Simulated assay, not measured.
Amino acid sequence: MHALIVTAHPDPNSYTQKIVSQVAQGIATHGSHTYEIADLAAEQFDPRFNQADFEQFKSAAPSPADVLAEQQRLDRADALILVYPIYWWSFPAQLKGWIDRVFTQGWAYLDDGERVEKKLGRLQVHLLAIGAASQRTYVRRGYFSSMRKQIDEGIFGYCGAPVITSELLLPSDDHYPDAHYTLAHQLGHTLFHAKD
């Protein structure tokens, strides 16, 4: 089984990257499974939804080459793991733009105006969101339920990709940061456990 780990943080030494590393190490401990890391910042993925993207959406024109390359990465994967810092209560712009451009009409879903065909049912999704505020702040603001509605349901549910893990990692969590490293490593280690 193969996993695609996608992240978007400009600092290669960030806490986000350390969590990515723990997930990858967890997958590697299981010998028979593989992973690929899509570091959107390091790869300088262009998140801007451009005219070619719009033409693909409106008329099923071919997607740009960079979008096709990302779709091929996802086609090879059995699981998608997003590890991201929370910026302004959402994804970083680069990660949101990756979703905007890559999860295209015809590839991720097919909406003919009368019904939606969800095309990514084979792809399990795992979300690790890294926040800086306290649990109390996120609960008071309703962030976690908003995140589940917007991301889990609004994006992945629309495409039929089941969200298996949706975690909010905060500095106020007990045994921070070690508990987060353990969780990330365990996620990687057990990622395909039910399928073995």
Rank of each mutant, 00 (worst) to 15 (best):
F103H: 03
G113A: 03
S134K: 11
V116L: 11
A132W: 08
G131M: 12
G121L: 06
D100T: 05
V102E: 07
F91M: 12
I151K: 02
T104W: 04
Q135T: 11
E153P: 00
E114K: 15
Q105E: 04
D66M: 06
I81V: 08
R122Q: 04
Q150H: 07
V125Y: 01
I99T: 08
D75Q: 10
G154T: 11
S90Y: 14
D78T: 00
D152G: 15
G142L: 15
Y87I: 15
R101K: 06
E153C: 06
I151Q: 02
Q135I: 01
L68A: 05
Q72Y: 01
Y109V: 06
L68C: 09
K118A: 04
D111T: 05
G97L: 04
R122Y: 11
R141D: 12
S134P: 01
A132S: 07
G142A: 07
L74N: 12
R73N: 05
L95N: 05
G121R: 03
I155W: 05
E70G: 06
W107Q: 08
R76E: 08
A77K: 03
R122F: 01
Q150K: 03
I151F: 00
D66G: 10
E114M: 07
E114S: 15
L127T: 01
S145F: 01
D75Y: 01
E114D: 14
Q71E: 07
L68T: 14
Q71G: 09
A132V: 13
K96A: 03
K96Y: 12
Q105M: 13
V139E: 12
G106K: 08
I99C: 11
R136K: 13
R76T: 03
Y84H: 12
F103Q: 12
L110H: 14
Q105W: 00
I99R: 14
W98N: 04
